[in-house]
Amino acid sequence: MHVVVCVKAVPGSTEVKMDPKTNTIVRDGGQAVINPFDASALETALRIKDAAAEPADVRVSVLSMGIPATADLLRDCIARGADDGLLLSDRAFAGADTLATTYALSRGIEALGGADLILCGKMAVDGDTAQIGPELAGTFEWPCATDVVEVRGLEPMCTCVRANIDRGVASLAVPLPAVLTVSKDIADLRMPSIAGIMAAETVSIEVLDAKRSASDARRIGLSGSPTQVVRSFVPDRADGAVTVPGDAAEQACALAQLIEGMSL
């Protein structure tokens, strides 16, 4: 059984600040962290491995597309129990939208020898489209379950999960191979073990550029991306709030008038 966990490096959440003058994202320090949803996906994979009759038969690979420094995050995943890591890194991958990212990741999965199960986070906290998981499933023509809150069991042919759906939670039997995207709260990622730290020190993270991953140059990066961000701005509601003055009684009186005028 081969489980591939897709992990994205994202800015540490406290560093997502806006420069009020230039309206751009300030990435002070540039300290990247593993997307919190992907940490949960990795823990889910590690628990599948732990629960297997022969844990050694379950291989957990971590896969990322990102800058060279992302290799350190993959190494950290190995310290926590993943078996190996693959990084897709090349200037040619830069500027990818979800379609181009999905294509690159699919090349990475091929390079890893395919997969029985792909685990993604429900979404990345920066781009937050939640599209990569279902687009990977579509690429391989595999079934998909999104926003999974519990993996109940994994058999060679099928996995049983509970997943959030519109207005409820569904229990699903998903035939393998498949893609699952997991909720943040499904599992908290474990700490590295001593053995894991030692393994991570010696393991070499495989890094593939566009050419070595046999990627079609027209399908990656900016040129392989159908969507373009043409403008970005800070929502104008910020700091526009009207202050309601007075003590609690006066404030309540003003608010009551306001609410009564709203025709709810």
């Binding site: 379609l99 687009e135 579509g138 519109d166």
Partner: peptide, 23 residues
């Protein structure tokens, strides 16, 4: 942009090889 819509639309986008803007 419901739970189902956000699972379905990417599946259409990747098969038609077109762009999809989220949410």
């Amino acid at each position: 942009a419901t739970a189902f819509g956000r699972e379905l639309a990417p599946g259409v986008a990747v098969r038609l090889q077109t762009g999809l803007t989220a949410d």
